[in-house]
Amino acid sequence: MPRRMTVGTLPAPEVKTRLQGDGLGLRIGSLGMRILSRMPAIHQGLPAAYADYPVLELDEFADFRVRIDAPPGPRRWIRPQAQFYLGTTAPFLPLPAHHALAMLEWGMNWCVSSGMHRYLVVHAAAAEKDGLTYLFPGESGSGKSTLVASLMLSGWRLLTDELVLLDAQDGSVQPFPRPVGLKNDAIAIIQRAHDHAVVGHQVRDTTKGLVAHLRPDADSIRRGEERGTAAGIFFPRFRRGATADFTPRAPHETFLALVNQSFNYQILGESGFRLASSLVTRVPAYDLQYGTMDDGKALIRQLHAQIARQ
C-alpha cells in the first residue's frame, strides 16, 4: 500500500479549507470518517489530536460524513454552541462551542455504536502485546482508559480506548484507535508518568468533568487495519488505597457483563449470542483491583506472562 499523507503534514489553511468544503477525511482503523465543520475549535483542535492519522482523500470512500457546527438560531452569536450531525440527525443536545472537539469524539463513537452491526460493539478498551489482545470492559470511572493509555505509552499497541469491535463472523478485534479521552486526575497522572505523552487542550465543565485527549502513538495508528485476537478479558477496578489483587471470573458472569456493555447485542440477535458465548468460554477473564496505576499495570503484565506461556 502506498504511504499515505497524514493530517499533520497538511498546512493549517488547507485543513480549514477541507473542513469547510468537501470535508476532511480521516482513516481510523479500517473506517473512513469525513468531517465537515465551520467551527474554529475544530479547525484548531482536530489537526492537533489527529496529526498522525492518514488522510482519506476525496476519491476514497468514507463510512460516515459527519458535521459539527453551530445549531441554527440566535445562539449562533450569544454564547455559541456546537451540535453534532450525521446527515440531519443530531443525536445529542447542543454543547457550548468550546466542547466541539470532545463532542466530535462522542459523535464518531455514536456513529459506530449505532451503525456498524457487522460487529458486536462493546463499550471497552483493548490493547495488544506480543500478538495477544486483551479487552478491558468497564463502567465509566473504572480506570480503563487511564490503564490502556499508560500501557500504550509503555509499548503496547492501542486498539481502542472506548469501543471494541468484535467481528460477528470470526470474533476478531477490529482496531478503532482514537485519541484517548482522559478525565480529571487521570490527565496529570498520565503526564507525570510519561514524559512523551502528547495531551491536547483541556476542556473544563463537560458532563464528564475536565476532559483532555491523549494522542495515540504512531504505531497503533499505522497498524489500524491489523486485527487482534482476543486472549483475555480484564475488568479493571481502580480504588484509591486498594491492594493489588486479581480474581478469576466465571464465563457466565463475563458473558453478562459483555452483553450489558454492548450497544447492539439485541440487534445482532443469535449471532451476537454465539459470538459472546464462544469468546467467554475460549479466553480467561479476571477482575483486577488496584490502588495505583503502576499496580494495575504490574497485574496486567503478570497475567499476560501467564497467558502467553499457555
Binding site: 463510512d63 451503525g115 456498524m116 445482532l268
Partner: peptide, 21 residues
Amino acid sequence: IPNGPAAHLESAWIAAEAQRR
C-alpha cells in the same frame, strides 16, 4: 459491491431484521 459500502448495507439489513423480530 466493495467492502466499504457493503458493510453499511449489511448493517442496515441486520437492524431491519431486528426490527422485524
